[in-house]
C-alpha cells in the first residue's frame, strides 16, 4: 500500500513540475500507460496473499484515478499558460491587409441590364435577342417609318449596304417577333444600338437600349402605365410614380414620353432631375394599328403597348457619372468603382 502512496506522491510532484504539455504527456504515458509504472504495480498483485488482493486492487485504481485528475488539472493549467504566452508573443495587427481572393466584377452596364432583366422577367416578359446588324426592313419599314420622313432625322444611321444597317434602336425586334409569334405575348430585348453621332460627354455612336412590348386582348395605356410603374419601382424604389407626356414615334399611337418622379430627391428638385422633380426615362405608346395590321393581327381584338429606354441612363443617374464615353473605355479605375 505504501508503494502506491509513494508512487502517487512522486508522480504528483513531477506532474506539478511539468512545464510543457509535451512533458506532461510523456509523464502520463510513463505512469499510466500500458507499460507504465502503475501497470507494473498491478502486476505485483500476483505476489500478494489472496485476502489482500481486493484491497490492493481497489487502492491502486483509486490512486490511478486521482493521478489522472491531477494530470488533467495540470494540463488545463498548462494550456492556459501556453495560450497566454502565445498571445503575448504573437500580437496580431488587424490593420494589416488581409489576403484577398480575386472576385469577378460585372461591367457596370451589365449590372444595370441585370436589374432590368430581373424586373421585366418578374412582370412576365420574355427576353429574346435579335441582330445588331439589322435589315432596313425591321429597323425602319416594319416600324412604320415612312420613306423620306423627318422622323429619321434623329436616327442617324450606319449603313452597311442599302438593305443593312446597324440597328439604331432595339425596337426592330418587334417585326421579328410578329413574324414568329401570335399574340398574346410579352417580350423584351436588351442590347447595343448605333447612331452616327459625334462622340462627346453626352453622345456616343454606341449605346444600349431595352425595348419591351406586349400584345393581348384589352391592353390599354393604363396597363402601360401600370407596367412602367411596377418596373420603375423595381428599379428605383417604392415611392416612384410614372408620368406620361405626348410624344411621337412612328411605331406607336398614341405615343408618349415617360418620366419618373425623381427617386433621388423625392420630387424636391435636385441635380439629377435638373430641379424639375421628374426624370425622363424613355419612349412608349400603344403598338401602332398599322403594324398590327401588317402582320394580320385583328386590331379590334388585340391591342398592345411598347416601351423603350436607354441602359446607360440608369448608372449615369445612380452614380452621377458625367461622361458617357467611360462605359466603353474599360479603365479598371472606373469599372472597379462599381462592385457588385
Amino acid at each position: 500500500m505504501n508503494q502506491i502512496e509513494t508512487l502517487v506522491r512522486k508522480a504528483e510532484g513531477e506532474v506539478n513540475e511539468a512545464s510543457t504539455l509535451k512533458a506532461l504527456q510523456e509523464m502520463q504515458v510513463r505512469y499510466l500507460g500500458r507499460h507504465g509504472e502503475f501497470t507494473a504495480l498491478l502486476r505485483a498483485i500476483g505476489g500478494l496473499p489472496a485476502e489482500e488482493k481486493p484491497a490492493f486492487g481497489k487502492a491502486l485504481n483509486e490512486a490511478k484515478a486521482r493521478l489522472e485528475n491531477i494530470i488533467e488539472a495540470r494540463r488545463a493549467a498548462l494550456r492556459k499558460e501556453d495560450e497566454t504566452r502565445r498571445h503575448a508573443a504573437e500580437p496580431q495587427d488587424l490593420t494589416m491587409p488581409g489576403r484577398r481572393m480575386r472576385a469577378g466584377l460585372p461591367h457596370v452596364l451589365s449590372q444595370a441590364a441585370d436589374r432590368i432583366k430581373a424586373a421585366l422577367i418578374g412582370l412576365g416578359f420574355e427576353l429574346i435577342e435579335t441582330p445588331e446588324l439589322e435589315l432596313v426592313k425591321y429597323n425602319f419599314t416594319a416600324l412604320n417609318y415612312p420613306p423620306d420622313h423627318p422622323a429619321m432625322d434623329d436616327q442617324d444611321t450606319f449603313y452597311v449596304d442599302d438593305d443593312h444597317v446597324m440597328r439604331t434602336h432595339t425596337t426592330p425586334f418587334q417585326g421579328r417577333v410578329f413574324e414568329e409569334r401570335r399574340p398574346p405575348f410579352r417580350i423584351f430585348t436588351i442590347g447595343r444600338c448605333f447612331r452616327n453621332e459625334a462622340v462627346d460627354r453626352t453622345h456616343h455612336h454606341t449605346f444600349h437600349q431595352v425595348d419591351a412590348f406586349m400584345v393581348d386582348e384589352g391592353v390599354s395605356m393604363a396597363h402601360l402605365r401600370g407596367t412602367l410603374g411596377a418596373f420603375a419601382r423595381a428599379m428605383f424604389g417604392p415611392s416612384v410614380t410614372v408620368r406620361f407626356r405626348p410624344d411621337y414615334f412612328p411605331f406607336v399611337e398614341p405615343g408618349v414620353d415617360f418620366a419618373i418622379s425623381c427617386p433621388f430627391c423625392e420630387g424636391e428638385g435636385c441635380v439629377v432631375c435638373k430641379r424639375s422633380g421628374w426624370i425622363e426615362l424613355g419612349g412608349a405608346g400603344m403598338v401602332h394599328p398599322d403594324i398590327l395590321e401588317n402582320y394580320d393581327i385583328d386590331t379590334d381584338r388585340y391591342t398592345g403597348f411598347a416601351f423603350g429606354l436607354g441602359v446607360e441612363r440608369i448608372p449615369i443617374m445612380r452614380y452621377r457619372i458625367d461622361d458617357l464615353r467611360l462605359f466603353m473605355e474599360n479603365d479598371l479605375r472606373f469599372l472597379e468603382q462599381f462592385q457588385a
Binding site: 432583366k117 412576365g124 427576353l127 398574346p184 402605365r225 401600370g226 408620368r243
Partner: peptide
C-alpha cells in the same frame, strides 16, 4: 394623360424568362 390610372395587365398570364 395624367388621368390615365395605373393598372397591371390582366388576361393571359405569361411566363417571363430568357430564351
Amino acid at each position: 394623360y395624367e388621368k390615365i390610372p395605373e393598372s397591371l395587365p390582366i388576361g393571359s398570364t405569361l411566363q417571363g424568362g430568357e430564351t
